[in-house]
Nucleic acid binder design. Sequence first.
DNA 1: TATGAAGTGTAACTTTTGTTACTGCCAACT
DNA 2: AGTTGGCAGTAACAAAAGTTACACTTCATA
Lengths: 210, 210
Amino acid sequence: MLHYLKENFTNIFEDELIEEINQVGTLKEVKEGEKLIEIGDYVRSMPLLISGVIKILREDEDGDELLLYFLERGDTCAMTLTCCLGQTKSEIRAIAEIDTTLIMIPIQKMEEWTGKYKTWRNFVFQSYHARLTEMFETIDSIAFLKMDERLVKYLQNKQKVTNDSLINSTHQEIAYELHTSRVVVSRLLKKLESLGKIELYRNSIKIISL
Amino acid sequence: MLHYLKENFTNIFEDELIEEINQVGTLKEVKEGEKLIEIGDYVRSMPLLISGVIKILREDEDGDELLLYFLERGDTCAMTLTCCLGQTKSEIRAIAEIDTTLIMIPIQKMEEWTGKYKTWRNFVFQSYHARLTEMFETIDSIAFLKMDERLVKYLQNKQKVTNDSLINSTHQEIAYELHTSRVVVSRLLKKLESLGKIELYRNSIKIISL
DNA sequence: TATGAAGTGTAACTTTTGTTACTGCCAACT
DNA sequence: AGTTGGCAGTAACAAAAGTTACACTTCATA
């Protein structure tokens, strides 16, 4: 684990902190599709992403989903940060988008480190800032864009985080994450294909140029 | 100013911190409609709300607005918190919804206090949490609700923060904040009036029961 | 009092999005 | 080979939201 830490966080945390993380953290590997946290769960530890991608989802009363944003290498979960202190429940669901490796830190340490290490504080604040920014972008998309534009953004985003121009999703899955219907997604995807921007296959979409 | 501080923050901050805030903070009064910060501005000080309401808005490329949430007594601005450290520009606009009193704290102190006072850290984290939660609610509204339901929520919210069942807004203003058109707002308001839930006047709306 | 600007009400229409229903296709399994 | 279930394509329709246009009211002020 130490090698992961040094690789990803040397220029962020001082050696002493890295050593502490190494002491109390535990390595966790999650497979694609595996759920990390559910809405209503209490948060017991804080994740540091070593590799992979986690998608963060919101849900309404009917069980309909909406993709909020992705967490990538070097990120942590903003929800966790506050939940730890406030003892409140999670308002989001977190699912591994691809196979992911993370280091879990017991929440007790959080409070301690926040007082002790300036670099830790900066990391936490930067995480908050990053998450807020992503939330703003999500809001912009939903509020200001039409579904076709949102779909394009979604595909671009997916391509970026998975680093793969072949997206392995069904139309139904995409519809869930954008909170629309399968028919609408199929319709818009077909339009994008006829424009030569993507190619459609069963269970996957190839991005040509968006 | 000390009296404001003691009144609003005694059970939150220790005396020593209250004293420090009193030393370096400056009292600021803003009138209804006055702009506190604009998108792209650099943030130079952090506000503590003593009384009044601040509305936080987001804007798209065309200059269209969207209301994100309100800040009330005891709140602070999450944007400020991260902007200070990261030296980034504001991504939101802040406008006084009603006459408002705040204490402005120079950003240099933030970093210092975060290391020094546990209560300050908790306050900052709680602020983040509150703001994140409000952002989630905003996203829920935009993504999951139809315009008529969003309008009702908007009116309820406005009534709550202003503590007044008479809302002094034109249909156009409401349309801006919900990012829709005036005609749509008029249409839906008329429907609410015919249901006996509100009464419509020129430049104002009286809430009966929502 | 006349004028004009801003606010509101409403009709008619278009666009966007969502829904229902049915088709064919593919892949896994018996 | 035949069956089945999930996936995708598409038409036809419905609902929601946005647009344009115009009439009428209120109010400040020339």
